[in-house]
Design a protein around this nucleic acid. Sequence first.
DNA 1: TTATAATATCTCGACTTCAAGATTATTATA
DNA 2: TATAATAATCTTGAAGTCGAGATATTATAA
Lengths: 146, 146
Amino acid sequence: MENDSVSQSLKLFIVLSRAYKAINEHVNKVIQASGLNPTEFAVLELLYHKGDQPMQQIGGKILLASGSITYVVDKLEQKGMLVRIACPNDRRVTFAQITDKGKAFIEEVFPEHAQQIHSLMSSLSDSEKQEAIDLLKKLGLPAGKF
Amino acid sequence: MENDSVSQSLKLFIVLSRAYKAINEHVNKVIQASGLNPTEFAVLELLYHKGDQPMQQIGGKILLASGSITYVVDKLEQKGMLVRIACPNDRRVTFAQITDKGKAFIEEVFPEHAQQIHSLMSSLSDSEKQEAIDLLKKLGLPAGKF
DNA sequence: TTATAATATCTCGACTTCAAGATTATTATA
DNA sequence: TATAATAATCTTGAAGTCGAGATATTATAA
């Protein structure tokens, strides 16, 4: 029946929200204990793993409004974790580039971060994780394009 | 290998975050178009579906600090969606109670809300949704208890 | 070429949230 | 009973986020 199908979708929405929030809450605590807030950490990790990024792109990847990017990048710059680099080709564009201090920070904190996530996920077996990954990809990819 | 297992957990964390954020972004837009913000909507829906609640309990269920509850309940009271009721047995406690206007609001907006979630989830079949529900429960319940 | 549109970043003001502490009420203990 | 501990709500100040608009640059079209 159509009605049951809708309430099943609602139920999935609820368990998805709960699982995300429960895990994220713990993850954020560890991040904040390191001295950065979750957004700052996300930006710095992006620069570490993907290299220099125009401010614009940071917003797209971390899902942050343009006004907020300026703010977060300011903070990280004040902390010496990144520097702004003017783009030589297009003077509208500014790149954010991680510093040595920023790299050292990520290299110190990231393994613990990864390990914590791993233990928060230990209630699923490897094959269950793979199933969950496949299902969530199938769920999230189309939703991102609406 | 242990290392692959950790990176699989990281991958699950990423797809979980993406799926949640992608869906939530759309859901929040519809809610905000109705004139409430997501937190206000969550509180009002709680009162509609679960009856009168002490302020304290609202915080526990919606995951909100006590200072924020006061603020949100103020807003909803100003909008005529709920009223504060003093508890006759324990004068420390204040109940929040949804008004007729609040009920009418939820009855108008909720079906559209549910339908939107349903269509955001249409990339999964009913049986895949059930698998996802089971896996996310197994993942989220223990994480909530850490 | 010049005018117009699109793009990137930043500024500013408003809103929401939290954390810490204050206030008031209740319960437990001496 | 008096005192202390606990509990629920509210107040305040700080931080983070967004949206709208400002500014500067680049791309496009007449």
